[in-house]
Design a protein around this nucleic acid. Structure first.
Lengths: 344, 344
DNA sequence: TATCATAATGTAACCGTTTACATTTATATA
DNA sequence: TATATAAATGTAAACGGTTACATTATGATA
C-alpha cells in the first residue's frame, strides 16, 4: 500500500499520460502539447504533488546547493550581502548554504572539504584567506567548477571576482578629510597581508601623494576589522608623539572600537579627533556620533555575485577567466568628522 | 566507459566485497566484521570515494537539510545563535539552511511552503510571527514533523521551545535600576502582541509591584526591536510630561537608537538619563557609552535548539509534547546607567 | 489520397545508495 | 562430530525522478 510515494507515476495516472510527459511538463514544458500540459497541471494540483529533489539531483548529477563561505557570520557587514544572495536564489532550484569559513574545529578545512567533495553546485567565497590546500585545488580546477569570490579575493587565482572599488573609496575618504582641513591623517588597517588592506592602502597612499601629504609611520596601525582591534588601535594612536587630527578606519567596526576607547580616555569625537569608517553598516547611522563613512553597496555585491553564479551554472560564462566586476562606493557624511583650521 | 561514477561498486570491487558490505561499513559499521571493515576503508581511501548524498537521501526518504528561519539575517542578535546551531550540526550528516522568514516576496509564505513540501528534515523557527496558514499546519502536524521554536515562539502550539528566561531578565533589569535609585522607569517594548514583549512586560510589571513602583502610561512606548524604532521612541520619552530618569529597552538595538537620538537632542547618557538594553550583542560593549544590559546566552540557545533537533530526529523525544527549556540570563553592568539620589 | 517530415508521446533504463531476504560462515552446544 | 544458533555476507529490489530511443499522431506537400 504505497501511499504518497511513487509520486510522478501517480500524477501520470491521474492525468492519463505517461510519466515522461509529467516530467517534461515540469522541466521542459515547451516539449509538451498545450493539452497534456493542462492535464498534467490539473493532476499535480489534485494529487498535491511535490517534486522529490533527491531523486532529481541523483539523476541529474547535481546537489542543488550553493555554498557561501563567510569569514564570520557574526559580522553584520556580511548580512546584507547574504540577503542579496539569498534573494537572488529564492526563485531558482538552488538552496543556499551559509557557513563560517574557518569552521569550528581549528583543524577543519571547510572550503577544501567542500571543494574536493564537490558537495555544492557552486561556491561563493567571501573570504580572501584560503588554505594552501584549497588554494592549490582552486588553481588547478579553476575552469571546471563554479567558484566566485566576492568582497575579498586572492591574487593570482582565475575565478571571477565581485568587489567594491576599494582604492577609490579610500582615496575618497582621504580627499574628504583633506577638504575638511586635516593634514595629519592616521589609518587603521585590516591585517597587513589582507587583500583589502592592500587595495585600500594603495588608495590612501596615492591620494596623499596627489595632495602632497606625508604619512608618519606611527599613524598607520594594523587591525583586523573587528571591534576589539579598533579598540586596541586607539592606544597606539594616542601614544603617537605627533598626534594625528583624524583617523580613517578600514571598517566601521574598527571605527566603533576606536571611538569607544577614545571616549573612555576622555577624548571626544569629533571635537578632539575625527574618525571615519568604511562599509556603512546599519549601525553607523545610529552610533554616537553618527559615523561618517564610505558606503559599500553590499546588497549589490550580493546580487551581482549570485547572478554571476547563475550564469556560470548555465554555462553562459566560464569560471577561470577572471572577469572583473567592480562595484562603486559612495561617501556618506555624518557627524564623526569635524572641519579644522589648518595650523600654519 | 563509466569513470568515477558507480561509486560504491567501484569500492566494492577494489575491496573484493559486495556493495552491501561497503554500504554497511559506512552506515552501520557494527554489522560488519573487523576484516572487511578495514578492507573497505582501504578501498575507499584508494578510490577516493565520496558518498553521493542525493542517492542516499532518495533511498532513505530524507533531505539531509535542517532549515532555520530567522526574522532578519541582518540583525546581529541572531548571528551567534546561528553559530551555535551550525557548530552543532557540523559533524552530522545534516546541512543547515538559513532563510529570512518573511521571504523577499511579500506574498511568499516561506515557512508554510517548506512545511508543506517537507523540504527539510527539521525546522528551527526563530520567529514568533507565523502566518495563519503555517499556524494551522503546525497545530495539525505537531507530532509528525520535527519543528522547534527558539527565542520566540507562539502560544498554544505544541512544538518544543528553547528560550531565555525573559520575565526574569526584565525583573532583574528593573531591580537593578531601582537599586540605583531610579523610581521613574520607562520601558521601550517590542511589538505589542509579540510574545517576548508580553513575557518581559510581565516581568517588569511584577517586579515594579514588588518594589512598590508605579508605571506612568506615557513611560511605555512600543517599538519593534530595531534601531530605528528606538530612535523614534526617544521622541515620546522626551515628550513625556513627567520625564522618566531611566529607560529599559527590550533590545540593545533599540537602546542604541534611543541613545543616538538623545545625543542629537543634547541629552547625555547616563548623566541626564540612564538607559539599559536587553540581549548583550557584541557591539554593546563598544557603544558610547558601553551599554548596561541583560545578557542572553545566545550560543547556548543555538546549541540547545540544535541538540534538541538532533534528538527529535533520532526519535529520542517527540515533537508535540512541548518540553520547555528556559535558559538563564545575566545582568551585565557597564556604563549607561547612573546612580541617582532619589528625590523626596 | 499517399508520402514524408515533424511534433508529441510512451517505454524502459539509469542515477548511487540502502536494506529485506537468502545464503554462507563461524561459534556454541549436545 | 553433528547440530543448532548467531554473525557476516551477498543478491537484488526499491527510492522517484530524467531522457535516449522507439513509436504514434499531426500536418504539409505532391
Amino acid at each position: 500500500m504505497k501511499s504518497g510515494s511513487n509520486s510522478i507515476r501517480e500524477v501520470a495516472k491521474a492525468a492519463g499520460v505517461s510519466i515522461a510527459s509529467v516530467s517534461r511538463t515540469l522541466s521542459n514544458p515547451e516539449q509538451v502539447s498545450e493539452k497534456t500540459r493542462s492535464l498534467v497541471m490539473d493532476a499535480i494540483e489534485k494529487t498535491n504533488y511535490k517534486i522529490n529533489r533527491a531523486a532529481r539531483n541523483l539523476r541529474m548529477h547535481q546537489s542543488g546547493e550553493i555554498l557561501v563561505l563567510v569569514p564570520n557570520l557574526g559580522n553584520p557587514f556580511f548580512s546584507e550581502i547574504l540577503s542579496g544572495i539569498e534573494k537572488t536564489f529564492q526563485n531558482t532550484y538552488y538552496n543556499v548554504l551559509i557557513a563560517n569559513s574557518l569552521g569550528y574545529d581549528e583543524s577543519e578545512d571547510l572550503l577544501a572539504g567542500h571543494l574536493e567533495n564537490n558537495h555544492a553546485d557552486g561556491i561563493i567565497i567571501l573570504d580572501g584567506q584560503v588554505s594552501p590546500r584549497a588554494h592549490s585545488w582552486l588553481s588547478q580546477h579553476a575552469a571546471k567548477h563554479n567558484v566566485i569570490f566576492a568582497c575579498e579575493w586572492v591574487d593570482g587565482l582565475e575565478q571571477p571576482i565581485i568587489r567594491s572599488n576599494n582604492a577609490q573609496g579610500a582615496a575618497t575618504a582621504i580627499r574628504y578629510l583633506h577638504s575638511l582641513g586635516h593634514r595629519k591623517i592616521a589609518h587603521v588597517t585590516g591585517p597587513k597581508e589582507n587583500i583589502l588592506t592592500l587595495a585600500r592602502s594603495k588608495g590612501v597612499t596615492e591620494e596623499q601623494a596627489r595632495l602632497g601629504l606625508t604619512m608618519d609611520p606611527e599613524w598607520v596601525v594594523e587591525g583586523n576589522f573587528s571591534l576589539k582591534s579598533g579598540y586596541r588601535a586607539a592606544e597606539k594612536i594616542l601614544a603617537a608623539k605627533n598626534r594625528p587630527t583624524c583617523v580613517f578606519c578600514d571598517s566601521d567596526q574598527m571605527a566603533f572600537g576606536l571611538i569607544s576607547r577614545f571616549n573612555i580616555e576622555g577624548i571626544r569625537v569629533p571635537e578632539d579627533i575625527s574618525v571615519m569608517g568604511f562599509d556603512d553598516i546599519e549601525l553607523s547611522e545610529f552610533y554616537v556620533p553618527p559615523l561618517t563613512t564610505i558606503r559599500q553597496n553590499r546588497h549589490g555585491i550580493g546580487t551581482a555575485a549570485a547572478e554571476r553564479m547563475l550564469a556560470l551554472i548555465k554555462n553562459e560564462i566560464t569560471s577561470g577567466s577572471n572577469q572583473e566586476c567592480k562595484i562603486e562606493v559612495e561617501l556618506v557624511v555624518r557627524n564623526s568628522c569635524k572641519r579644522i583650521t589648518t595650523p600654519k
